[in-house]
Design a protein around this nucleic acid. Structure first.
Lengths: 187, 187
DNA sequence: CCCATATGAGACACCTTTGTCTCAGGCAGG
DNA sequence: CCTGCCTGAGACAAAGGTGTCTCATATGGG
C-alpha cells in the first residue's frame, strides 16, 4: 500500500501553507488554499476531506504548537514573570495561527470545542495564579482574564505586525511589557 | 412622498438589532438579521441595499459611537491616564460592535477602509503620545502599539464577557488596569 | 520496459446565500 | 369609504463554493 513517508511530509507542507494563507485571508477558498500550496483542489481534498477537516487539522497544529511552546517555556520554573516572557517568546511564531483559530472558534458556537484548548487555558491560568500566589502579580486581575488578554494581545500584535504598524522585532517586547508592566511608567 | 420620521427610527432599530446579532454570530444570514429585527428580508433590503451596505452602515455606527466616546472622554484634559480611564468607560458599550468591525475589516483587504478609523486612530495615538510626553507613560511602547493593544483588549474583554469568563461589571477595571498598570504588582 | 500510484484538470450536481421581483393584505390619512 | 403606501410572503434566477467523479498523464519502483 502507498503509506509512504512523503505522504505525511506533503500533508505537513500543505498544512503550513494553508496556515500562512488563512491567517492572512480567513475566507480563502479551497481553491485558493490548494493553489497556494502548489497542488490541485483534488489533491487537497485527498489530504483533507473538506474545509472543516482542514480547519480541524489547523486547530490540532495550533494546539500542538501551543503545547510545545508551553513545554519549552517551563511555566513552573522560576519567577512567573520570567515564565511569561519565555512563553511569549516561544509562542510568537504561532501567534498569527492562534489569532485565526481564535476568531474561527467563535463560529463553532454550537459544537463543543477541542479539549486541547481547555488544557492550554488551564496551564496558562495556572501560571498566572502562581504569579499571584507568589506575590509577583496583582490579585485584582483574574487569571482567566489575564489568559484572555494574552490571547487578545497576541492576536493584536500579529495583526499589527502584518499591517506594518509594529516592527516584527518589537513583537515580544511590546506584548510582554504591556502585559506585565502596563503603559504607566514605574517610579 | 413617504419621508416620515419613523423611517429613520426603524432603520436605527434595525441597525441596533443587526449589531447585537452580528456581534454574536458574525456569519449570520440576511434572513437571520431580518428575523432578529422582527422584519422580513424584503423590508431589510429596502433599508439596506445589501449585506455590504449593512456592514458599512454598522461601520458608520461604530465610528460614530467611537467618536462620541472620544468626545465624552475629553482625551486632551487632565492626566492622560485619567483620559484613558474615561475613554474605556465611555467606549465599553461599543466594544462588541468594535470587535466585530475589527475582524470584519480584515476581510476588506483590497478596498480602502473608511477614513473615520484613521481619525479615531489618530486621536488615540495622540492621547498615548501625550501621555508619553508628559512623562506618565513609558516611551518604549509606541503609541501605535498602545492603540492596537487597546482595540485588542476591548475585543478580548467583550468576548470574555460574552463567554462568561469575566463578569460584565469587571470589564472596565480589567481592561484599564491591564492596559495602564500591567500584571505586575507595584511596589 | 511495465505497472501501480499519485496527481492535475476539468466536468458535474448540489447547496447556501443573495438580490430582485411580484402580489396580496393591512393600516392610516384624506 | 377610498386610496396610497408600507409590509410580509413567496418565487425566482444568479453567483459562489463545495464535494464528488472521471480521465489522462507522469513519475518512480520492480
Amino acid at each position: 500500500m502507498g503509506y509512504r513517508c512523503c505522504m505525511a511530509v506533503d500533508r505537513e507542507q500543505v498544512l503550513r501553507s494553508a496556515a500562512a494563507l488563512l491567517t492572512r485571508k480567513s475566507t480563502a477558498t479551497m481553491d485558493e488554499v490548494a493553489r497556494a500550496a502548489g497542488i490541485s483542489r483534488a489533491t487537497l481534498h485527498r489530504h483533507f476531506a473538506g474545509r472543516d477537516a482542514l480547519v480541524r487539522a489547523l486547530e490540532e497544529l495550533g494546539i500542538a504548537e501551543c503545547e510545545a511552546a508551553l513545554e519549552a517555556a517551563r511555566p513552573d520554573d522560576g519567577p512567573a514573570a520570567g515564565a511569561v516572557r519565555r512563553l511569549v517568546r516561544a509562542i510568537e511564531p504561532s501567534a498569527a495561527l492562534l489569532a485565526f483559530l481564535y476568531t474561527e472558534n467563535q463560529l463553532f458556537e454550537g459544537e463543543e470545542q477541542n479539549a486541547g484548548w481547555a488544557r492550554i487555558d488551564a496551564r496558562l491560568t495556572d501560571l498566572f495564579r502562581r504569579g499571584q500566589e507568589s506575590g509577583e502579580f496583582r490579585i485584582d486581575l483574574t487569571p482567566a482574564w489575564l489568559t484572555e488578554a494574552l490571547y487578545g494581545l497576541l492576536g493584536a500584535g500579529a495583526w499589527a505586525v502584518a499591517e506594518g504598524r509594529v516592527a516584527r522585532n518589537d513583537f515580544n517586547h511590546m506584548i510582554v511589557e504591556l502585559l506585565l508592566g502596563g503603559a504607566l511608567r514605574r517610579e
